[in-house]
């Protein structure tokens, strides 16, 4: 079993929160989520398909996200759009509160180290 990079682990933990937060603003398809999330997070959350699709499907399986197919543009392939569910919104609230508390605490700790 490979030893995991701690930064990767930290990013993975933030992924669920990032995806729920992004999709809660508007329904989006996979490719749009990759570019949209990178832009919205100022490059802080850059995803590859390798981590995005399994994460989206896992969240859908947990019923935190739902999806719907929409016809493609100009005769292109139909696209799968993800939407947040009620359960997902509740989870987002819980995770956001925990994140704010945690990041505030860690920031204070790191700022304290600088002084």
């Amino acid at each position: 079993m490979s030893k995991k990079d701690p930064v990767t682990e930290l990013r993975r933990g933030a992924l669920e929160l990032g995806l729920l937060a992004f999709i809660s603003k508007e329904a989006c398809f996979g490719g749009g989520i990759i570019t949209g999330l990178a832009e919205a997070s100022n490059g802080g959350l850059t995803l590859t398909e390798g981590s995005l699709y399994p994460a989206l499907h896992r969240l859908e399986k947990k019923k935190l996200l739902s999806s719907e197919w929409q016809e493609g543009v100009n005769g292109g392939r139909r696209r799968k759009y993800y939407l947040i569910t009620e359960k997902g919104s509740e989870r987002l609230g819980v995770l956001s509160a925990a994140w704010n508390e945690l990041s505030g605490g860690i920031s204070a700790l790191l700022d304290g180290d600088d002084e």
């Binding site: 398809f29 490719g31 398909e49 699709y53 292109g76 139909r78 696209r79 799968k80």
Partner: peptide, 16 residues
């Protein structure tokens, strides 16, 4: 089929 349809459409969007 669902996974392939989804990823195929996203690839198509990126190529465009």
């Amino acid at each position: 089929r669902d996974v392939c349809d989804e990823i195929g459409a996203d690839l198509e969007a990126r190529i465009t």
